[in-house]
Simulated assay, not measured.
Amino acid sequence: MNPPGTPQQPGLARRGGSGVGAVMVLGSCLSLQVGAAFAAQLFPALGPGGTTFLRLGIAALVLLVVLRPRVRAWNRSQWLAILGLGLALAGMNSAFYASIARIPLGIAVTVEFLGPLVLAAALTRRARDGIWVLVAAAGVATLGLGHGAEGGDGGTPGGLDPLGVLLALIAAAFWAAYILANARVSARVPGMGGLAVAMLVATVAVAPFGEGAAAVVAEPQLLLMAAGTALLASVIPYSLELAALRRLPARAFSILLSLEPAVACLAGLLLLSQTLTWVQALAVAVVVGASVGSTLSARSRPVPPVPLPPG
């Protein structure tokens, strides 16, 4: 299994520049999780739905302006692939933001990591990958055993909000769907124009749940915060990720991105004052270790890195 990243052709990585590539990957992870932490701070004013709508909408606008996709040249098959990717993005982002409104950011990201792990095991059908999934699942199951963890709005001293955990699992399922949809779009639509339009599709899909976004009319500064969230959670991570893929082998890229749950825990601690118990911290470490272990045990089988979710 190769956790988050974008498909890369063999031999694409440049010789040299590995250190720069590693910094870019870590910068992508950090930007993504700081963006998520900023989004959580918008929840009291906009709600998770309103925040999701604005973040996706602003990111879509930026990508459309920068990439200017040639939509008139696309055929029915390409449009269907992009529609599927947009719906996967909508479900993944909506469920994830609703989750971090209830449980700590680091825990939500850790649970969400089950998506690519389970998918990789299902695609490769190797017993060893199944074992790594079981190890990660055990780590996730351990997350709720600690006391004193407090989520964004719904954490309790006695444990984790069950609905928050369920929403993170739904986000994990949509992440797996996003991986498959992204691979389909990458194969059928040249460049990143497909992602830009898929972002627009996702924005339209979440619009019915984004009524909280109307608060920006009375408080325009919220729009600036949402724009910053969109840049941090989508535009910057994807730019860094694509640049890093030109400098790093796929396996090194995947191992570095396996640190995503740990980075999320750090962002939650520093920006949202979300602390974890030692049991929960150990559980996060187990999931990270399972992801790294699965990547290292992949040998030379041609499974490309999994796309990093834009937000």
Rank of each mutant, 00 (worst) to 15 (best):
T52C: 01
A60Q: 03
S99F: 00
W79T: 07
V66F: 10
G146H: 00
T124K: 00
Y97G: 07
V292H: 11
A138Q: 04
G50E: 02
P157V: 03
G148Y: 10
D153Y: 10
A171Y: 05
A290I: 04
I236R: 06
L30H: 01
A88M: 12
R299E: 15
S77T: 15
R246N: 14
P116E: 11
Y97S: 02
P190E: 02
L240Y: 00
A59S: 14
L105F: 02
L85D: 10
G17N: 14
I179A: 04
L200V: 12
L63M: 15
V204A: 09
G151F: 03
A13N: 03
A207R: 09
A127I: 15
L61E: 10
F113C: 00
G311K: 13
E241K: 02
I255K: 00
G155F: 11
F113L: 10
A267F: 05
S186E: 11
L105H: 10
N2V: 07
V204Q: 13
L63D: 03
P190A: 13
A215V: 13
G152T: 06
P309I: 14
P208V: 09
L195S: 01
A267P: 02
T6G: 13
F96C: 09
I58D: 09
R188F: 03
A168S: 15
R301H: 12
G154H: 12
G193L: 01
V140D: 06
V292K: 11
L308H: 03
L276E: 04
A290W: 01
A177R: 07
L270K: 10
N75E: 13
A227Q: 04
F209T: 14
T156M: 13
P237H: 06
S99W: 06
T124W: 05
A198P: 14
T295I: 10
A205S: 12
V185A: 06
G159C: 09
V189G: 00
A183Y: 09
A214H: 14
L276M: 14
A173G: 10
R125Q: 07
A121F: 05
L80M: 14
G130I: 08
P116A: 08
L242S: 03
L64H: 07
T52M: 04
T277F: 08
I103W: 06
